[in-house]
Write a protein that binds this DNA or RNA. Structure first.
Lengths: 342, 342
DNA sequence: AATAGTCTTGCAAATGTTTTCATGAAAATG
DNA sequence: CATTTTCATGAAAACATTTGCAAGACTATT
């Protein structure tokens, strides 16, 4: 008489409602196919028994898992947090649940995570950027589920993508500094090995400088991870030198924030003594004192659009064609940039 | 001859390897039970066919889903990001996949999300704090899966919990300001209706002030959401007044950050003219200029410990007893607090 | 009133795995 | 060499659901 694992399943609900399991299933998945009165009885039985349907069972039947995967480099930072939240909200609103994984900027690890998500039979999958292992690309191709590279726009991408042109972002940032009259410009970027976003931004920025016949000394091409703390340290060294740049072009806003703090710590006045520009326009960048000049990447819109795109692909069954969507990025001029000191 | 939905399943792998499906299953789940030679053949067949096991099928069989749910108020902010990352990493290292959901500080929404996670048959579930709807508590009790309230420690909690004593955090913050000699103290907190963390911190801080026979005027009890931007605006009003406090006790670090920016914007010198203390010690708080004095909540340790606890509960099958784990919070004295101006 | 059409429902097969039980082979023991 | 023990494997049942098919109950049409 133990009630032990007395978990209500669909047949116990059916029994309670005096109908067959099939009818309960239909009431849940295709309500228009069952008589309102029966539906009512079933609702009651569900309520009474505390039944919670088992998605695994419907997944196994070949139906969708109602799950969408998102693989990001990191969650511990503010970098992708707006994107993740927007993606999560949109996906949730469409009835899916988010399976999230973070690989810590390690593509080998990313592959493992992607496999894990596929084991759970996600209906669709979003990745950040277009730099992925060959094995990742292969397994995604084999499985043939809707996949989307988010954050980057690349007209030559192998898979659908939706985001901004990172080269453009880098170019705009460089142009802004040039236009203000800066010629002594340092570039602070993370390692660009497995990070196409940083690579494209950096390459475009450097090209723009080169085009203005500016060459930056080796010491002004700083490499630091996406971390405010480490960026601050790196910039302290850079700025303490007698011969320092008049402007800092930062790979993203968390680096820019570190740079700003370093400048403030050294008693430099921003933007009088030093201009700083970031890329991203993350939450909080507008509130910094002085407020950060940056290139806006519309993270919320990208996240929401990505979710919608994938949800549509899943709902429409039909194999969607490759789609590339480009979002504009935009210079947000705030208070950390000005012409160089005379 | 179309290969259409030719997805490899366990029997196709078995056929390819010349063994039975049962053996393939064993090779995957209990490798020690199958002969090394057969294992090799099976590995090869798996490789060759691109087989990816179907977790749904093993979930349905009553085995675990290898999934752990985490429900947080928000991801778009830095507040829980360290916790989420640590939780994710630890859960991942134990072979589980994270199902993440954010409810936006709305307990009704939280209930819906919890149900959704239960539909996916998460093996365990973590929630933030102990304020949850009655329906949430009920459904969790009924389902009887390992559940953990993270972030808060409460000796009277109805479910297992793991975190800090928020009242203590509030008290420490208040005591620190009192010890420095402040008597004109404003408190900036979010709405405490459905947020026990904020409520406990605030109540304890107010009690400490009261005990020192300090009463704060109505206008100094500011209410603002957990948002740097909104906190900054609220503090601008507060600090612009002729009669302003000498210290700001902030509900968490993102509010404190907003407060700091407001002070800087008004040309106040922190900590000479104004002291600011936060709670949380989020990423970036140490790098602010001046660096933020705050009460450290060991988010990474809490996240990792929570994940380990839940993974253990799942692995050990046996119904774990209610467990309450307390983490200490600690005053981190940095550069935003000092004695009040003479 | 007979027939055709529309709703509503139940039966049973199917989904991809895990696991219990049984069986035969190989190894260890006397 | 006979017997017991251990090991490796397969057959089949079980898991919780969805859905194609068919049949029964109504409704509308002649």
């Amino acid at each position: 008489m133990k009630k032990q694992r007395d978990k209500a399943d669909i047949v116990s609900v059916a029994r309670l409602a005096g109908v067959s399991a099939a009818t309960v299933s239909r009431a849940l998945n295709h309500p228009q196919l069952v008589h309102p009165a029966t539906r009512k009885k079933i609702d009651l039985a569900i309520r009474k028994s505390g039944y919670i349907r088992n998605r695994a069972a419907q997944t196994i039947h070949g139906r969708r898992s109602a799950t969408i995967g998102l693989v990001v480099p990191t969650i511990a930072d503010v970098i992708f947090s707006e994107l993740i939240q927007a993606f999560n909200d949109a996906v949730s609103a469409r009835g899916f649940t988010l399976l999230l994984a973070a690989h810590g900027y390690d593509l080998a690890n990313e592959y493992a995570l992607v496999r894990k998500l596929l084991e759970h039979r996600v209906d669709a999958l979003a990745l950040i950027g277009l730099d992925h292992g060959a094995d990742t690309y292969r397994v995604l191709r084999e499985q043939g589920l809707p996949v989307l590279a988010v954050w980057n726009y690349d007209p030559a991408s192998m898979i659908s993508c939706l985001g901004v042109d990172n080269a453009e972002a880098g170019r705009i940032a460089a142009d802004h500094l040039l236009m203000l009259g800066h010629r002594r410009i340092a570039a602070i970027f993370p390692d660009t090995g497995e990070n196409d976003r940083a690579r494209l931004r950096r390459a475009a920025a450097m090209a723009a400088l080169q085009a203005a016949s500016i060459q930056t000394p080796e010491g002004w091409r700083v490499r630091t991870p996406y971390s405010t703390a480490q960026a601050k340290r790196a910039c302290l060294d850079l700025l303490a030198a007698a011969d320092r740049p008049t402007a800092l072009l930062c790979g993203n806003d968390v680096i820019a924030q570190g740079a700003l703090y370093a400048a403030l710590k050294l008693g430099l006045s921003v933007p009088r003594d030093l201009s700083i520009i970031g890329i991203g326009d993350f939450v909080g960048s507008a509130e910094l004192e002085p407020a950060l000049t940056t290139i806006r990447i519309p993270a919320r819109r990208i996240g929401a659009a990505a979710a919608e795109h994938l949800a549509d692909s899943v709902d429409s069954e039909a194999g969607q064609p490759l789609a590339r969507t480009r979002f504009d990025c935009e210079l947000i001029m705030r208070a950390t940039t000005a012409p160089p000191p005379a």
